[in-house]
Nucleic acid binder design. Structure first.
Ligand code: FES
Ligand code: FES
Lengths: 157, 157
DNA sequence: TATAAGCTTGACTTTTTTAGTAAGGTATAT
DNA sequence: ATATACCTTACTAAAAAAGTCAAGCTTATA
């Protein structure tokens, strides 16, 4: 019953982007990597997917980095997880869309209804958290982060 | 975002036990294995855990097999999944109890609250389905199963 | 316009987990 | 006795996850 680290890393990374969102400045991977202690090369993979799924855009060259495409209040954790995991179904059988391997007993299988409901509720739950929520909560829990963001700003001006 | 097959197999297997529950007869692994097309040796592992977690009891020798310890209406899918997966936490950090590797940033991490809530809702959801529910639903979806159970009875008398 | 910051792409490797096998045992109804 | 069925430990193959490597491409800016 585990998400891959892509999701947890991805959410943490996007919280950083959300915090920077108002400042209209892209955040380079290296910064997130340092801050969050996540392998930079691995983060690149993650951001690649996020970009392909249209959640972030990239700005190349010096001063570049990644930025959210939409307002953080408009992006839910569900979207992030879907972008990175591809699905939220707890079993193969109930793949929903075109996930290979159709299960032969699906017509007469009662347990599939459990898994379907479970997927529904997960979607609902993750849909309830926006990146703005989490960014706000982060600044509450870790005021140091706010300060750091300020400093970062100053160092650039 | 997947459960292991242990959970889906386990739930399916226990539905069979639930169907047989009223008839007060243990079900041997071989039968379930045949019916559900699940490797018998693998099922043994699964029933082992279910037994250790107190969900089923075993009767040895000819005419033996496994039977539910409690009434099917009193056993939820959540219990089954917990017995077989050990946990329902979507990430390592939020291990709840004594799952090794304490995460160092847990104090200041906002996303942990998402994962915690997610675990809560999964528990809630799976807790809402009892084995009796699923047994009943199975007989609705697959009347052949009811008939087969009857025949099985007759063949023994 | 040279440089370096930063993204892009695809393949590759390592580690961990999952899904099973294999083999030999023990209890018990008939 | 014997066949049925559970019990236990160990092993293995395959898949997935986590992470690395290498070589490029864009673009701001000095
Ligand atoms: S739908 Fe595949 S086993 Fe239930
Ligand atoms: S609690 Fe471990 S990273 Fe959030």
């Amino acid at each position: 019953m585990r998400l891959t680290t892509k999701s947890s890393y991805g959410v943490r990374a996007l919280i950083s982007l959300a915090i920077m969102y108002d400042r209209k400045r892209p955040v380079p991977i290296k910064d997130i990597s340092r801050e969050e202690e996540i392998s930079g090369v691995y983060l690149e993979q993650i951001f690649n997917r996020l970009k392909n799924q249209g959640l972030v855009r990239s700005i190349r060259g010096p001063g570049g980095g990644y930025a959210l495409v939409r307002d953080p209040s408009d992006i839910s954790v569900y979207e992030v997880v879907m972008a990175l995991e591809g699905s939220v179904n707890p079993v193969r059988c109930v793949s929903g869309k075109g996930e290979k391997k159709e299960c032969g007993r699906i017509a007469t299988c009662a347990s599939k209804e459990v898994w379907r409901e479970m997927a529904r509720r997960i979607k609902e739950t993750l849909g309830d958290f926006s990146l703005r929520d989490l960014a706000g909560r982060t600044l509450e829990l870790d005021p140091g982060k706010a300060r750091k963001a300020q400093l970062y700003e100053k160092s650039l001006s």
